[in-house]
Design a protein around this nucleic acid. Structure first.
Length: 768
DNA sequence: GCTTTGTTCCTTTTT
DNA sequence: GGAACAAAGC
């Protein structure tokens, strides 16, 4: 049991064996933080602390599960009794138990961002406000920001500063919207993400017996990624540990990247003030990366003024210099990275899973997906439009949510006329008006609909109510989540509707639905899950984090994700792509929050994910919602000490550029530039795993040899050339207007007639 | 009330 | 390029 301690370096040892009193671990990137946390919990348990008394808050549920399994290996099956999870999932669990104190039932709904926005939109409309001025996104951010700082709607409306700010932003009614939004959530028996934390604070503030209970329950409180906690989260942990003072926070101020959602770097900088007898341990040795990568990262982060003093170092090999690669376009960037991965797999004997492509925004993934797909490299995308945000999935979940909680207004609006049953907007509006006139919940109105309306719509509503009632009965009979979901999918007709849709999209949606039912089955079949009810399943779904999505079980894939998603992860080879001004650092960030330091920390996080090799790429031109933009190299590249960098045109000795694409035994067929190979959204389990052999992939007509239309080829385009346009089909160039990036061509299309096009390269290719 | 077609705005990042 | 919404037609 104690032999694992011998593998630790002195500060790690100190952190692991520190038992009582406040502790702050400043853990530099790659310093073995997870190992320390794991061992620390194991050590506490070894010292006789009951796992029921340990609360460990992690950043993703997946991280919690991994840690739990590692502890299990050291100390045994008791580890399953540890309280572990994200802030949101742990305190949602507590609110299920204690929420009745605040007027919620135990089956409250958790509104996701879409629900919140939709509700705000409804309120804006009801208030008769202009929805061009009152943007749901902005309002939600405002409300969320307030709640993360523990400002209630009452306090907000009493605060002249907030109201003046809103008036200044031409939105004086935000306070009133905040109030209505909060009351509507409450009467829907629903909490949004911020409410889970806000209400936990309210619970602990107003119900001291509850606070007391959990203070004594959680004898040890641990917080991972402490630099990314907000005030609301910090106060929860502070209150919980007020009696025992056994609070251990682990973080790295250099990796604080969530200020946009209220994370407060001051939490970590000021922790010492709250705990004067604080022990501080600094883990400064990086075991993950080469010297070159660590030094480069240090030279970058040194530009930040706000930071705790520490010296991260590596005793690993020197390693290769960081490659900086310029690509001509975003598509070429994709090909360069895909080729480099291909080459590196062969040269260094690496697997797909050793590579990650990290970008600033989800929208950047497309070029890399296409390039990887073309050369049959399996990949997985983390984040972006998640499985649970797809329409067909949300539809079924809407039914399940409404079955559990009939006050759920957002679910009601989604499913009342789905599948179409002749209840249009007018009827729904009438129901809502009637409900508010009689001061009764919507469910009360619709379940006695004949008392209020008659006619065709009333009959449809009655059928709908009976459907829901039948599901409720199943729930009361304690049928498990899968049984009920199956019944819902079948008896609503939603499953059949997708089944008879034989379009590619319809097929994909049907597969998605099947996948959903499978995952519910997995949930109810999992022996580790005690509560197999519908409510328990819904909760687990609504608090999934992006990293929690496991895909189809094949781990050997290249990982594509945002840098935010890469927190806590490591890969042998990392590509940080889109290193361009306005993209990274993001111009949005600079415009709205003017926080270059947070962007720099984000880049620091990206660099420090790499163990062996790091490549930075940027493109000279890039499409941004249909328009071609010209880009400049990111200032961040210049900020790294140049002695750690190696600038090059193309990686891999220049032999793997976009235009020299033939590998041994690997014949590439050139395809129309931006025609997606897979027209339907991939199901989660597919995750593009089952790539078609190149020969089956849709290609340009066989008889016409084609080449990609590259931007550099504009100079070659001349009158008389035959071209194909993605939308307009085949045509002949009549005349070129001028050359260079702003070139225009007059083209006579076979079916569409003459058109003048600003040459948008992805849509046009030369047919020789 | 439903379906088709046209128009607009958009994207940081996530629980 | 595309989702989300509005208008127009059935």
């Amino acid at each position: 049991m104690s032999d694992y301690l011998s593998s630790l370096n002195p500060p790690q040892y100190e952190a692991v064996t520190h038992e009582n009193g406040p502790l702050m671990i400043i853990a530099g990137a790659g310093s073995g933080k997870t190992r320390v946390l794991t061992y620390r919990i194991a050590h506490l348990m070894g010292q006789g602390v009951d796992p029921f008394n340990i609360l460990s808050l992690t950043f993703t549920n997946k991280a919690a599960e991994e840690m739990r399994h590692r502890i299990e290996k050291i100390i045994g099956s008791e580890a399953k009794n540890l309280w572990m999870g994200t802030f949101h999932s742990v305190f949602a669990k507590i609110l299920r138990i204690e929420g009745h104190r605040l007027g919620y039932t135990s089956n409250f709904t958790i509104y996701d961002t879409d629900d919140s926005k939709s509700l705000i939109k409804t309120i804006v409309k009801e208030f008769g406000l202009d929805d061009k001025t009152y943007k749901p996104n902005f309002i939600l951010n405002r409300i969320s920001g307030a709640k993360n700082n523990l400002i209630s709607w009452q306090a907000y409306n009493e605060n002249p500063i907030f109201l003046a700010e809103d008036t200044g932003a031409q939105m004086p009614e935000i306070g009133r919207i905040f109030k209505t939004y909060s009351m509507r959530c409450f009467s829907a028996n629903a909490m949004d993400f911020d409410d889970l934390l806000f209400n936990t604070n309210v619970l602990f503030r107003d119900h001291l017996d509850v606070l007391n209970k959990y203070q004594h329950k959680f004898k040890h409180v641990m917080v991972d990624e402490f630099q990314d906690t907000n005030i609301s989260q910090y106060l929860i942990t502070k209150k919980l540990s007020a009696v025992n003072q056994n609070i251990c926070v682990v973080g790295d101020d250099a990796q604080s990247i969530y200020a946009f959602r209220g994370a407060n770097i001051q939490n970590i900088l000021n922790f010492r003030k709250d705990y004067p007898d604080l022990n501080v341990v600094k883990l400064e040795q990086n075991y993950r990366s080469t010297k070159n990568i660590v030094n480069a990262a240090n030279s970058l982060i040194a530009k930040n003024k706000n930071q705790l003093e520490k010296k991260v170092f590596s005793d690993n090999e020197e390693g290769e210099k960081i490659e900086v690669v310029k690509a001509h376009s975003d598509n070429e960037e994709g090909r360069i990275v895909a080729n480099a991965i291909f080459e590196s797999k062969v040269r260094d004997g690496l697997k797909n899973q050793d590579f990650a492509i990290l970008y600033r925004t989800n929208a950047q993934s497309r070029a890399f997906e296409e390039a990887l797909r073309k050369i049959n490299i399996k990949y997985r995308i983390i984040g972006g439009l998640s499985f649970y945000q797809r329409k067909e999935i949300k539809d079924i979940l809407g039914y399940l949510r409404f079955t559990v909680n009939q006050q759920d207004e957002e679910a009601f609006k989604r499913i009342i006329n789905l599948p179409k049953r002749g209840i249009g907007d007018t009827t729904v509006a009438k129901i809502i008006v009637t409900a508010s006139e009689h001061q009764k919940p919507i469910w009360e109105i619709v379940s006695n609909i004949k008392m209020y309306f008659d006619g065709k719509a009333a009959n449809s509503i009655e059928n709908f109510v009976n459907l829901i009632k039948s599901y409720k009965i199943m729930m009361e009979e304690e049928k498990d989540a899968h049984t009920i979901a199956m019944q819902v999918a079948k008896s609503t007709g939603l499953m059949h509707e997708l089944y008879i849709d034989k379009t590619v999209e319809g097929k994909a949606r049907y597969d998605n639905l099947e996948e959903l039912l499978n995952s519910i089955k997995q949930f109810t079949d999992n022996p580790e899950v005690e509560d197999k009810s519908l409510g328990a399943f819904l909760q687990s779904v609504s608090l999934l984090t992006t990293a929690d999505d496991e895909g189809d079980g094949d781990p050997d894939k290249v990982t594509l994700m945002t840098i935010h998603g890469a927190k806590g992860l490591e890969f042998k080879n990392v590509f940080v792509v889109g290193m361009e001004e306005n993209l990274f650092p993001s111009q949005m960030m600079l415009k709205n929050r003017d926080d270059l330091e947070e962007e720099r920390r984000l880049f620091y996080v990206a660099i420090t994910r790499a163990e062996k090799r790091l490549t930075l790429t940027y493109a000279e031109q890039r499409y941004n919602w249909g328009k071609l933009n010209f880009c400049e190299k990111s200032r961040f590249i210049e900020e790294i000490d140049p002695s750690y960098l190696k600038e090059m045109e193309k990686p891999g000795g220049g032999n793997f550029g976009a235009d020299s694409f033939d590998f041994q035994g690997f014949q590439r067929r050139v395809m129309p530039a931006s025609k997606p190979v897979q027209t339907s959204p991939p199901t989660r389990s597919q995750t593009i795993a089952n790539l078609k052999p190149v020969s089956q992939v849709k290609t340009a007509p066989q008889h016409v040899p084609t080449v990609d239309f590259q931007p550099s080829d504009t100079k070659n385009l001349k009158a008389g050339d035959k071209v194909e346009h993605q939308k307009f089909g085949f045509g002949t160039v009549k005349k070129m207007d001028n050359l260079g990036p702003t070139a225009k061509a007059v083209i006579e299309f076979e079916n569409e007639g003459e058109k003048t096009l600003l040459l948008s390269f992805a849509k046009l290719r030369i047919v020789e």
